[in-house]
């Protein structure tokens, strides 16, 4: 609209140590430093986080939902990747 439009940033918050960053939402900021601070004020004002990432929304490459089948379905028919695929006699422990 005008040159005052601030770019959009995606915000990822680590809620506590030991957990990974999770997408929390987005916000507008003129630059990375303010994006980080705005994210702190907006998404962690109730103590929801110990670490924040901000990423320009334009820098994210996402898989397309139209490619859903070729992207994700092949992974669904390889049950041998999951531990439940294997029969283990009852009573065998630590496996």
């Amino acid at each position: 609209m005008t040159n005052t439009d601030w770019p959009l940033w995606e915000v990822f918050v680590r809620s506590r140590r030991g957990l990974s960053h999770t997408h929390a939402g987005s916000l507008h900021a003129p630059d990375a430093e303010l994006a980080l601070r705005n994210a702190r004020d907006l998404y962690t004002r109730r103590g929801e986080g110990v670490s924040i990432w901000v990423v320009p929304s334009s820098a994210i490459t996402a898989s397309s939902p139209d490619e859903k089948d070729p992207f994700f379905e092949p992974a669904a028919d390889k049950p041998y990747r999951h531990p439940t695929f294997y029969d283990i006699p009852e009573g065998v422990k630590h496996l």
Partner: peptide
């Protein structure tokens, strides 16, 4: 608030960190 938003956008353009700055974990 327009002049404030413009100022921040101009600052970011000058310093080349509009949407490309690094963040830390």
């Amino acid at each position: 608030g327009a002049w404030v938003r413009e100022a921040a956008a101009a600052h970011a353009a000058k310093h080349g960190n509009a949407g490309t700055g690094a963040t830390h974990a």
